[in-house]
Design a protein around this nucleic acid. Sequence first.
RNA 1: GGGAGAUUAGCUCAGUGGUAGAGCGCGUCGUUCACAUCGACGAUGUCAGGGGUUCAAAUCCCUUAUCUCCCACCA
Length: 1019
Amino acid sequence: MPMEKTFSPADAEARISDLWIREKVGAAGANARPGAEAFSIMIPPPNVTGSLHMGHAFNNTLQDILIRWHRMQGHDTLWQVGTDHAGIATQMVTERDMALHQEPNRREMGREKFLSRVWQQKVKSRGTIIGQLQRLGASCDWDREAFTMSGAPGAPAGEDGNFHDAVIKVFVDMYNKGLIYRGKRLVNWDPHFETAISDLEVENIEVAGHMWHFKYILADKQTYEYIEKDEDGTITLREVRNYISIATTRPETMLGDGAVAVHPSDARYQSIIGKMVHLPLCDRLIPIIADEYPDPTFGSGAVKITGAHDFNDYQVAKRNNLPMYRLMDTRAQMRADGAPYADAVKRAREIAAGSPTDENEVDALNLVPEKYRGLDRFEARKQVIADINALGLCVSTLHSEIDPETGSEHLTREPFVEAKKIMQPFGDRSKVVIEPMLTDQWFVDTAKIVGPALDAVRSGATKIIPESGEKTYFHWLENIEPWCISRQLWWGHQIPVWYGPAIDQSQHGGLSHDTVSFCAVNASEVQKQAEAHYRAAFGQHVRIHVESGESNSITEVQRQQGVNPSAGTTSALYNADWVPDEITIRRDPDVLDTWFSSGLWPIGTLGWPEQTPELQKYFPTSTLITGADIIFFWVARMMMMQLAVVGEVPFKTVYLHGLVRDAKGKKMSKSLGNVIDPLEIIDEFGADALRFSNAAMASLGGVLKLDTARIAGYRNFGTKLWNACRFAEMNGVWEGHATQAQAPKATATANRWIIGETAKALSEVNAALKDYRFDNAADALYKFVWGKVCDWYVEFAKPLFDGPDAPETRATMAWVLDQSMILLHPMMPFITEDLWSTTGTRAKLLVHTDWPTYGAELLNAEAANEMTFVTTLIEEIRSARAQVHVPVGLKCDLVATELSQAARTAWQRNEALIKRMARIDTLTEGPAPKGSIAVAVEGASLSIPLAGLIDIAEEKARLTKTMDKLAKEIGGLKGRLNNPNFAASAPEEVVDEAKANLALREDEAAKLQAALKRLAEIG
RNA sequence: GGGAGAUUAGCUCAGUGGUAGAGCGCGUCGUUCACAUCGACGAUGUCAGGGGUUCAAAUCCCUUAUCUCCCACCA
């Protein structure tokens, strides 16, 4: 049955994909030679939040190309597939879906039910993702599919891997080594998801904001002389003030101010440092302190300090021992909990006066006046501004207005509000304004584990390409901040720490309101630990009740940890003589940052902590291919974590790529409507076209712009290969012999030439892939298959099929096309696998066919020279004919007026080809007939007699144009060669090349000059 | 404010010292038995501007401009 005219991706891809999956072609070690070196890649696990986008398609194409290339070479390959539980993102998607279907919300459902609901979501999304990868042709080991939460408590059947165990074990180990700690710190709080997030999950975006200026009045009716000077020291303002002017972009936080800070060197405020000011609206006094932080040249030089809601102020407050009053709840509404304001402020005054306290009490103190309690922070801001204005405590400016009627000037006072661009932090998922919040969180002490991660890249143990990625990597790691790893979510790995009441050391040894932590891999371990702890304390056994943490709102957590939010100071609950029957320890309800677990992806998927054979064989992995946007989130953390846990780098090479954008370079986004769904592309053009485009786009360090016109072009490339094979098939080239492992022994020049070209293509592809230059590999293959095989070799073969060299030509064409399929297979697996099976009886699937190893022995300089002569000759004749408008259908004669020895040989041996492809009737040698067009190539001067058929003027113009071009080149070459410095300084081969080039050009010019002269004779 | 990168044909991009390339697009021609998802031929560039190094610069250095991205606490 003859082949169809075009390859039909829709039907072939489904069939072939099924076959690959059924045959487990991507199984770890498939097609490996005994004792072969390992090559392993960890897929960057896609989030189980939906479907894959174009960036995934790109990223996975590159991975598959490398994997297939190595697998065909007989290496022991593993492409580890899997998905990421993506804590916040998945919880968000699930809650959105629940809202859509009018299901009860998460709090109504409770933790356990909600989690099983998320698992459903996970299963659905996971199926979509795996299906997409398979449609793309990814040859992963599907049986090893991993999940970053496999084996977690509550996981449904089929999710019983041990990733969870690995994560928990790492946490416990790091905890025991002191690499993880808990503390009350100012963290980025996402009021939408009501959780802490890490620095990296915050996006700083410039928005239009305002700066307000307020007056804080000095206590006890004090005044001071305020003097302002310009740069020269000339006094520009001198007045007696009873206030200090402060500026703020966040007026609502003034309710929690602990001080006003000025720079110690600021002359304007020297006299009032240490004095107290009235905090507006609050009935509190706060001090003016001196601190290095304020910039005297900015604003008024005085800064209000709100330690609990600003990262700078937090540092100042810590340095100066200022109380930090938390003003908002988890939703960033002004707090409505705790004692009435009057009581709270009374206590605050006591504390300010020196009454002993602790951070928990300060945190419990709600200093939001009743009026603002429960308001959203932005609502509270408006209210605070209005109230301060009403009190006349805003700094105001004089505004002059001319009355159009009377022409008289009115002066009005208006609050001084500057419109100002400010950088505002937003949650990368929630897109709401992040609120700095003082909360208890878990941190990885990154400073302690960053060293080896830096050393590994410095020493080259891990190489990052492109190199600029290394700079980014170093810069971030050299300035590493503690990593906040606790999240107040439900979907994730729950932190394996339980809290119990602490033994009161200071008093009589009873239980206190303080807590003690127990960290262990599971409840029974923690029970043992707690029993041992309390036995030691009480001298006898105490029953331990272990509870799992349910809720994680701030107050809930404190309650569970035994902290009484309303308690004043810690105090012994029980006296020493009394031993409790039972002590309850409660698990920390928080879960771990998703990146903590995906940071363990390399070892976790290979079965660690078990010493599995796969871990032995495939770790450290060979190459990580991932987006440059997650170098900090993931790459750097994997480096730190793997080195901290198993003491080895997770991968030898990291290949970073950019974001895939649309054809115009715009980020693909739903709101712009320019998102391209990889499945739609695959439906329209086929997976191979998409893959080949991806490879061709993958130059190092660039922006990736995806243009469907380009994809269509590569679809056409597939069709081209298909049709070359179709031609070969029609000529029976695959009939009667098995797949040839070796290149055929050929005698015909064209055959010897194309065999050499194939060897060149192989070496180019190998070199390009070795350097991760997927674009160069794609380019080399495109040029070889289309430019050499299809454009020339297929044409050369046509006359050969009619002659004595037919058998070897069939063998050669079969071999060349087989090689084309093999070399293209990593990039275009479907069409090549389909052709492989259509065109012959094959021992193995193409996916497991050996990658060739031939090299220079197949090159043949003689054949290459001869074919270059022939192709150049044909091109020149075609060009000349077309330019002087010789009808394509007209067969001409060709007269050689000059032939070198080599040229004559080539001329004679390839007569049939020249005739066929240049549309020539007879080939003769002799003098140039009158009225002919001229063609000059290396070693030959030719004429095409066309008396009467051509326009002499046109031919003259053509020759003159060519001459002009040559003259320019000759001029340049001569200029260089005549420069004594060139000969003296340039390398010998460059000088020789220039000389040879000049000779060649001069020869060609002479030939054309002669032709031009002959034309002149005609008229 | 700091850092990285980009600027080459109409468009999207290759090109790490030897006188500029590809694909697409464009124009002319084409129904010879692989292919119109094709073939043949053709046109198109002061390689962002300026300066420097060099026998020689798209390429190396300096500088200016424009753009992109990343990081950063100026109230």
